[in-house]
Write a protein that binds this DNA or RNA. Sequence first.
DNA 1: CGTATCGGGATGAACGTTCATTCCTATCGG
DNA 2: CCGATAGGAATGAACGTTCATCCCGATACG
Lengths: 200, 200
Amino acid sequence: MNVHSMLPTVTPHEKPDKREAILDAALELFAERGFHGTAVPLVAERAKVGAGTIYRYFESKEALVNALYQREKQALGAAIVDAFPFDSPPRAQFHFFWDRISVYALAHPTELAFLELHHHAPYLDATSRAVEEAVLAPAFVFFQNAIEAQVVKPLDPMLLGALVWGAFTGLVRAAREGRLPLTPESLLRAEECCWEAIRR
Amino acid sequence: MNVHSMLPTVTPHEKPDKREAILDAALELFAERGFHGTAVPLVAERAKVGAGTIYRYFESKEALVNALYQREKQALGAAIVDAFPFDSPPRAQFHFFWDRISVYALAHPTELAFLELHHHAPYLDATSRAVEEAVLAPAFVFFQNAIEAQVVKPLDPMLLGALVWGAFTGLVRAAREGRLPLTPESLLRAEECCWEAIRR
DNA sequence: CGTATCGGGATGAACGTTCATTCCTATCGG
DNA sequence: CCGATAGGAATGAACGTTCATCCCGATACG
């Protein structure tokens, strides 16, 4: 065996994975019409693959939505945590967090809509739940620290998290419904509101 | 025609309306499994009526979910607006509002879950959207007044509304997932947070 | 170097199931 | 008795899933 025989041959261009194409198609459709409202052959059509091809990559429709949920939740988590300023004071950390989810919301509205719509759905499996928990954990730690530093109200971190995330989500939803524009300015104003909601 | 002929006859006790039974059954199932995830015969079984009976009261599954949405949205709106202290200062009005939705959330968790899950769904018709708008309007007026009275930040009333409603919704959702208890105390703390978020 | 053979990914028509809806029969109050 | 109402088996469409077949690049062979 020489080195060349072990490397894949050139594979000139065909590698943009069908698996990814299926996930991308499923993302749009599930975000728009929900899990039960989306027919598998429709996903295949949008992904430009045969209906049967989906079952070469995913065991079932449920396995597909779980794989997608995990991909998107992890991407969101990574977008938030990457380069997190662990040593900055809480207010700066909060700004960092808010800025990151704002950028994410503006760049990936469909992904956010999908995650929101499928949050805690009964067809999500244990792995999806575990990913959910793992992404949630850093926020919990942040609130804990901020409370100990006495800059944030001494309330259940879960309550604080639910308020802030709920408020952000409400904003994004209203924007999606065309009730208000989602601009960097309005997001900054909303950040001030949320900080004043939780600060001591 | 005399007066008696115009009044309904005695109807001794059997009036627990099948229509209501169907709506009640649909409420639980739609809240739990969503619109597309709920089979009509299952609704019939839960309501203890024949499958065909549903179609004596509702033109279609879509008509059923719309009738239910309108019933629940209007009940929520009525619960909030009834006896609203129009002449009180904004802070008292906000407290009244928060108290009412808190009581509603504690007494009608399934109804709230249904409304949240079906919010802005594509199968909701023009009437449902109109009801949605009508229930939203008073909140809009409240924020407008509170801004003019200079006790609330001069931001888009829609943004303020989205933040507060989103925060409340986040709380209720977290409670439903068992992440935190939904007690009168925690709801009061959350109210303070939300007021500080929007107050000038 | 050209041709035959191979193998695994991709396919979409077809399958059995389940769905929303219909319709005919049974029931019941008047 | 009769008209209206309720019931649930029947129905056709649409669903998720399967599988016999196709396709195409790689390899073996003459």
